[in-house]
């Protein structure tokens, strides 16, 4: 049996005392490329934020390779959902990617040439090197998404959390991104992606979690990605007429 990369036990999260995630138990094995699916407002972003300690749960616990998140920060990289940052902030693409290195630097210490080199390599990887000095609001939506991917890559983590990386990107960029994600999996990393396009789940991912306030199901795509679970998650009588 594979190691467990992320373990969530009895997790309940609330905004202003109104729970939006109820009693979630979840085990994510190492080395999977996993989709989290569920309708808008299902709590997908909230789940990721709670795992990463950005939100404090009212009950339950999270562990990364058996230890609390605070001890394992260096193992984890995060690409937030678009719109969670200030696009008019005076900063360049390169600078944003460099922020990925801040975690390993810790408090007070400043980035040096080494961090800059890593950031440039990550930009190269996502095909954004020509735009390195561009102010970020002057990039298109898909380009902004690539910058955030580069920022996660530069963290050189073991586990990647990505909140809707395909939002508003064109087909070419989507393929470019998924190829990078598949490469990460090949390198033994665990990748967790909030995903809205149900059509592409079987093609892109090997693991899936259905979420709607509660956890509906989690497991290998080939075993559990079916009409039954989709209906339970999305409420309506769902028919997947998409697979083989």
């Amino acid at each position: 049996m594979k190691k467990i990369a992320v373990q969530v036990d009895d997790l309940t999260v609330a905004y202003n005392y109104k729970p939006v995630l109820w009693d979630i138990d979840l085990e994510i094995p190492e080395g999977v490329l996993m989709a989290i699916v569920g309708p808008n407002g299902a709590g997908k972003s909230t789940l990721i934020k709670a795992i990463l300690g950005i939100l404090k749960p009212i009950a339950g616990s999270v562990s990364i390779y058996g230890k609390p998140y605070e001890k394992q920060r260096d193992l984890v990289a995060y690409v937030p959902q678009k719109g969670s940052v200030d696009w008019d902030f005076p900063t360049t693409a390169l600078d944003v990617v460099m922020m990925g290195t801040y975690g390993s630097l810790g408090w007070i210490k400043r980035p040096s040439q080494k961090e800059k080199k890593a950031a440039l390599e990550a930009l190269e990887k996502v095909g954004m090197l020509p735009f390195k000095n561009r102010q970020i609001s002057q990039l298109s939506g898909g380009q902004q998404q690539r910058i955030f991917l580069a920022r996660a890559l530069v963290q050189d983590a073991s586990i990647y959390f990505m909140d809707e990386p395909f939002q508003g990107v064109d087909a070419t960029t989507e393929i470019a991104i998924i190829n990078i994600l598949k490469e990460l999996r090949k390198a033994g990393k665990t990748v967790i992606v909030v995903h809205h396009d149900l059509q592409t789940v079987p093609e892109y991912f090997d693991w899936v979690t259905f979420l709607n306030v509660k956890k509906i199901a989690t497991g290998p795509v080939k075993d559990i990605f079916n009409d039954d679970n989709l209906t339970k998650t999305y409420g309506i009588n769902y028919k997947v007429s998409i697979q083989e």
Binding site: R73, V85, D86, T91, V96, M99, Y102, W107, I108, R110
Partner: peptide
């Protein structure tokens, strides 16, 4: 650096431990 990252992207800052 901490001021910059927490102003630009509070979520990332929190996940990195700042």
């Amino acid at each position: 650096k901490e001021l910059k990252i927490s102003t630009f992207d509070a979520g990332l800052a929190a996940s990195l431990g700042f």
